[in-house]
């Protein structure tokens, strides 16, 4: 389908454009919305790591040792910690969206509470998970 070149159309007849993202004042809902998309992208990439780990465990003792050593290294632990927080924040974002889909939590106070609540909840769950990791270690 051939589209008309917008620069050929007189300015006052062009379709309106939304302002650039930098124009808007930051709000909690905007921040968690962007974080939801970013964590989604991060988890997408992380799935490759999950598949690689499972394949290493399904392989032999050597491939499992290599995977364990990588995950146990400082960088590996840092990535795992980030993955945990991304997973929890995205899951809390999912709960927030379920609440909104059900038609609740749209007034200014409630939507900011949901935004902050998902961040605090994700942080708390991440800390709890890593406490369990350090106890079992």
């Amino acid at each position: 389908m051939a589209e008309a070149d917008p620069s050929q159309i007189p300015l006052e007849q062009r379709r309106p454009l939304s302002p650039h993202v930098q124009i808007y004042q930051w709000s909690p809902t905007m921040a968690v919305s962007i974080a939801h998309r970013l964590t989604g992208i991060a988890l997408y990439v992380g799935t490759l790591g999950l598949a690689a780990y499972l394949l290493a465990a399904a392989g032999n003792a050597r491939s499992f040792q290599t995977a364990s050593a990588l995950l146990g290294s400082f960088i590996g632990q840092l990535i795992l910690f980030g993955y945990t927080f991304a997973l929890m924040l995205h899951a809390m974002g999912g709960i927030r969206h379920i609440i909104w889909d059900a038609g609740h939590g749209f007034d200014p106070e409630a939507r900011d509470k949901l935004a902050w609540g998902s961040l605090v909840g994700a942080g708390a769950l991440t800390v709890l998970i890593w406490i369990a990791v350090f106890i079992l270690r």
């Binding site: 598949a51 499972l54 399904a58």
Partner: peptide
């Protein structure tokens, strides 16, 4: 591809 590879690994762990 990534989903099937991960499922393959789990099935291999289950049946070998």
């Amino acid at each position: 591809a990534v989903g099937l590879a991960a499922v393959y690994a789990v099935l291999r762990l289950s049946f070998t």
